[in-house]
Amino acid sequence: MEIIVFLSVVIAVLAMLISIFLVQRVKKQITEMTDALMDVKSGNGNRRILSVANELVAPLAYEINEIVVSYERRLSIVRQTEETNRQLMTSLSHDVRTPLTTLIGYLDAAHKGMVTGKDRDDYIEIARRKAHDLKEYIDILFDWFKLNSNEFALEIQSVEAAELTRNILIDWIPIFEDKQIGYDIDIPEQPVRVKMDMDSYMRIINNLIQNVITHSHADKIKIMLSKKENNMELLLADNGMGIEKEDLKHIFERLYKCDKGRSEKGSGLGLSIVHQLVEKMGGNIAVESVPGEGTEFILFFPLEY
């Protein structure tokens, strides 16, 4: 009996000691968690809480780590957005105010009689072209803001893409001829049905062609629509100056402008808008380029059966 009592006392003491140890261990870990969270609150998003898998507070530690990681990701997105907005404001200051000032200068000169005859007509024509360039830039800018707002919504419907593409390109033919760009357009007569947003598809093609005209210095462009396995494929190729390999990696990034050919003009948003619209419609876009030889953009959209 005495042995049983003695063992009971020993077990009780050991249990108490273990409990005290566990409580102290938990208190220490909670203190470490508090310190870590204060560190995160101060801006150290790389701080993590270490814990062994079999410890009591392990699930809590892992959950807090997940929250911190998620918080850091969101914070990174916010920082990127702030930087993009800052760059956009800088771009607006230069790319809108500067041509607008020049435009007003030409119009004022013509209006005040500072130039007459053919010179006046030339000034008005220059002002007209600059006004169209400015409108194009503002349209792209509004597209960008709309695309990245909560109000943007696609109207996905069944579309006969061959005829739609043909109708879009008809408006570009006079521009190709005016700029002396040879064109080769190959669109099948048979229907090609795809689910897409018609306005977005039009914007994609217009942005890609405008990119060729503005930046590639090409004198030939090829546009071919075809069926490849389960996809509609749209190829848009030019024989322009091409894009360097390093620039090609970033071609669809917002506000990115290549060192050559794109830096002198443009918003740096056109191809980013194209990439986003293609993805939102369930398609893919690829680009290949050889400097000095030309560039190919290839669009893929799933066929509708």
Score class of each variant (00 low, 15 high):
1 M>F: 02
1 M>L: 06
3 I>W: 07
5 V>L: 15
14 L>I: 09
15 A>N: 15
16 M>W: 13
25 R>A: 11
27 K>S: 12
29 Q>G: 08
30 I>T: 09
35 D>Y: 14
43 G>K: 00
46 N>P: 07
47 R>K: 12
47 R>S: 08
50 L>T: 13
52 V>H: 15
53 A>H: 13
54 N>S: 14
57 V>D: 11
57 V>K: 03
59 P>I: 00
59 P>K: 01
61 A>W: 06
63 E>F: 13
65 N>S: 05
71 Y>F: 11
73 R>C: 06
73 R>H: 14
74 R>M: 10
76 S>E: 14
77 I>T: 11
83 E>W: 05
83 E>F: 03
84 T>W: 11
87 Q>P: 07
88 L>E: 04
88 L>F: 09
90 T>Q: 15
90 T>L: 10
91 S>E: 02
96 V>F: 15
98 T>F: 10
99 P>C: 05
100 L>N: 08
102 T>L: 15
102 T>R: 10
103 L>Y: 07
107 L>R: 04
108 D>F: 12
110 A>N: 07
112 K>L: 10
113 G>S: 08
115 V>L: 03
118 K>Q: 10
119 D>M: 14
119 D>T: 11
120 R>P: 08
123 Y>D: 01
125 E>D: 09
129 R>A: 08
130 K>E: 15
135 K>M: 13
141 L>T: 08
142 F>D: 13
145 F>Q: 14
148 N>Q: 00
150 N>H: 10
153 A>E: 03
156 I>H: 04
157 Q>F: 01
157 Q>I: 05
157 Q>K: 15
161 A>L: 11
167 N>M: 09
169 L>D: 00
170 I>K: 15
171 D>A: 10
176 F>C: 00
181 I>Q: 01
187 I>N: 01
195 K>R: 13
200 S>V: 05
202 M>Q: 12
205 I>L: 06
206 N>A: 07
209 I>H: 07
210 Q>I: 08
212 V>C: 10
213 I>D: 05
217 H>I: 09
219 D>Y: 05
221 I>C: 09
225 L>S: 00
228 K>S: 12
228 K>V: 15
228 K>Q: 12
229 E>I: 05
232 M>P: 04
233 E>C: 05
234 L>A: 05
238 D>Y: 06
242 G>F: 01
243 I>T: 01
247 D>H: 00
247 D>G: 07
248 L>A: 00
252 F>Q: 00
255 L>Y: 06
261 G>T: 04
264 E>N: 09
265 K>G: 06
265 K>H: 11
269 L>D: 07
270 G>Y: 05
270 G>F: 04
272 S>D: 00
274 V>T: 03
275 H>V: 01
275 H>A: 04
278 V>P: 12
278 V>G: 03
279 E>Y: 08
279 E>R: 13
280 K>A: 09
280 K>Y: 06
282 G>L: 08
284 N>S: 14
286 A>D: 15
287 V>M: 09
288 E>R: 10
290 V>I: 14
290 V>F: 07
293 E>I: 09
294 G>L: 02
296 E>D: 11
301 F>V: 03
302 P>N: 01
303 L>F: 03
305 Y>E: 15
305 Y>P: 14
